[in-house]
Design a binder for these strands. Structure first.
Lengths: 149, 149
DNA sequence: ACTGAAAAGAAAGTCAT
DNA sequence: ATGACTTTCTTTTCAGT
């Protein structure tokens, strides 16, 4: 798991820049590269760290519209809908089930409003989607820090 | 920007594992390490790639409850609220402004329901928050792929 | 659990092709 | 963009504490 403040410092650094070398991290926290490697490996194995991802700008890649779509999917269709999501909806980047009547909150990147309409049409077979256009991502993927108890 | 399919393949690989070495990527896509380095550097400079982040499991770190909170903040208070968000709300990991009456959708990790109440109380000074408990993250940080055409 | 040393591997730079 | 080359840095492994 997470043992001490050093582990927390390592987690913070890797959340800010996942490509930092163990040597670089070691210099900041005051441990040898091998000690960092061991700690990171332990946190990977215990799934405290679940992966490392590059963040990309969808608008620079032809996905110029981002939306949040909320939809209730009734229990009968729920499994068939949530099964194979990323395959059925390649433009979906997030899907969160939340409390409320079988409610899903999803995030999509689409090319334009025609593409959005097409996505909404596909979704409509499973429920009644509410679409919110994303105007500004004020905070995104903010690092998780130590819970101060 | 993004020149060709090779760039796209590199982006896919880095979104799946941001710690891959240029040499590893080169072996997969069939280019030399220095060619990969140049392409990645170009995509960083043009801000196609905006960063590299480690993904961590909040529940293994003492943040056992995750919630989405929606709230309208009227235009007068909007700037004062959105200014210094991560400092005022360290438990906030996402804040998205969407269409609708000055509407914000936020994501928080909290320790427990008491902590959640405390967060809701703090928010209530700026608007009327609606809280949805996250039950399951079916899709999270799904890689962005090539827009077909 | 950490250090330090040695070997292997990768990165960053140069240059010619 | 590659290949050859050098220098520097990093990872990995392992013996030692």
């Amino acid at each position: 798991m997470v043992k001490d403040d050093l582990d927390w410092k390592i987690l913070e650094l890797l959340q800010e820049n996942a490509r930092m070398s163990f040597a670089q991290i070691g210099r900041v926290v005051g441990l040898s590269p091998s000690a960092i490697a061991e700690r990171v490996q332990r946190m990977e194995e215990t799934e405290v760290i679940t992966g490392y991802t590059a963040q990309v700008a969808p608008d620079k890649l032809g996905w110029s519209l981002s939306v949040i779509i909320m939809m209730s999917v009734n229990r009968i269709n729920f499994e068939s809908f949530t099964n194979d999501l990323s395959h059925e909806y390649p433009e979906m980047v997030e899907c969160t089930r939340v409390t409320g009547k079988d409610c899903l909150i999803m995030k999509f990147h689409v090319k334009n409003s025609n593409h959005l309409e097409e996505v909404v049409n596909r979704l409509s077979r499973h429920g009644d989607p509410t679409t919110l256009l994303i105007l500004n991502e004020l905070l995104k993927n903010e690092p998780i820090r130590r819970s101060i108890n």
